[in-house]
């Protein structure tokens, strides 16, 4: 059972990687908001870039999550 326990612990540790992606996505949206309040006229044209950036940052968190699931069930 020790190996089993280690597996769960490992899965939990793997998902800590999502913290970075959470910080990144929060940072992206926060910076966007700060910029948008400063220059609201230019904000609408940058929404596409916003989501692409958020998606790129999020992908790495998702990677950690998938790894966690794989360790848990694999």
């Amino acid at each position: 059972m020790e190996a089993e326990a280690a597996k769960f612990i490992g899965a939990g540790i793997a998902t800590i990687g999502m913290v970075g992606s959470a910080l990144a996505v929060g940072n992206i949206f926060g910076q966007f908001l700060a910029g948008a309040l400063r220059n609201p006229a230019a904000a609408a044209s940058q929404v596409g870039n916003l989501f692409v950036g958020a998606a790129l940052a999020e992908a790495l968190g998702i990677l950690a999550f998938v790894l966690g699931i794989l360790i848990w069930l694999g």
């Binding site: 998606a55 790129l56 999020e58 992908a59 998702i62 990677l63 999550f65 998938v66 699931i69």
Partner: peptide, 13 residues
């Protein structure tokens, strides 16, 4: 890989 994993991971999660 990232294209596939992003969509997959979001839906799975």
């Amino acid at each position: 890989v990232t294209l596939a994993l992003r969509l997959f991971g979001n839906m799975l999660g």
